[in-house]
Amino acid sequence: MGRITLQGVRKAFGSHTVIHGADLDIADGSFVVFVGPSGCGKTTLLRLIAGLEDVTDGRILIDGSNVVGVAAAKRGLSMVFQSYALYPHMSVRGNIGFGLKMAGVARPEINRKVEAAAATLNLTPYLDRKPRELSGGQRQRVAIGRAIVREPKAFLFDEPLSNLDAALRVQMRLEITTLQKQLATTAIYVTHDQVEAMTMADRIVVLNAGRIEQFGSPLELYDRPDNLFVAGFIGSPRMNFIGKEMAKRYGAPTIGIRPEHLRAARDGEGWQGVVSVAEHLGSDTFLHVDVPEIGRLTARSVGELGLTTGDRVRLSPDPARIHRFDADGRAIRS
């Protein structure tokens, strides 16, 4: 079991408040990603749950019991650090088995479990090596092995893939999600990479400046962002925001339209503009278009349109996909 509930959790370092009252209910077995810009408090929130920092206010419940004041060692959670934080003086076997040793598990049992974990993670040939004799990806696997072998109530990951190259990152991303589904253990995963967030999460927590902006499934966040921040943060390229006169026609101070919901064509209906930059990705084309009275808009089209800088273009928004926001930046739902 591993249900984690935050109730009004606040954290201040001295007079500087970093987390302003977070409320969250993470269901057992779900994969939750904390995402947000740098410095928004993702790591801090994770460390509060881990017990590596003390909360200033509020309660943290694991399976219904308050763990505020309970030492990190006694919370039954395991953590994968960005730096891996392997024990440099222990072999891979020692690293993975350390938690079991601390729990007083008998040696044959430790060996059996460590070997099983190593087999899952393709680490069997490296069991007797020291961490410094491993590649970055292998170290990452050891760190994951150390986390899973203890059968914790939940895994906490703090940007575990940020030190790996792009290809390995995609592969590990898949391995981590597969493993998590297989083990059905709650996981909280911190990242600032929204692609990682969208692909891995069952549910995403979007954080901004120490506040939870929205908590929902990836598609909820994409289709129905609660506010301007979430709308702008989720999705790549970014959602276009349009204000002033044009927005008033839709009855809101600000409207938003995603690049993929702006149809670009050489002629026909819609806003007229001039292509300033065209990015050709092969599968997709991103057009950055200057539209008089609206500004710069980005449109995403599937395939090749044959448009380049200086060409005239018509952009027509999909009316069902227009997001409207009030003066405070909150979504207007009709």
């Binding site: 881990a50 017990g51 590596l52 030492a71 990190a72 060692a73 006694k74 959670l77 395991s78 953590m79 650090f81 730096s83 934080a85 392997l86 024990y87 440099p88 350390f98 938690g99 601390m102 729990a103 150390r146 203890r150």
Partner: peptide, 22 residues
């Protein structure tokens, strides 16, 4: 690195064992 000590703590080591083993 502080991380390594914290990793030991997450692995369930008490302060004394963190000192001795890590």
């Amino acid at each position: 690195p502080k991380d390594i000590l914290e990793a030991a703590r997450m692995d369930g080591a008490t302060v004394g064992r963190e000192l001795i083993y890590v």
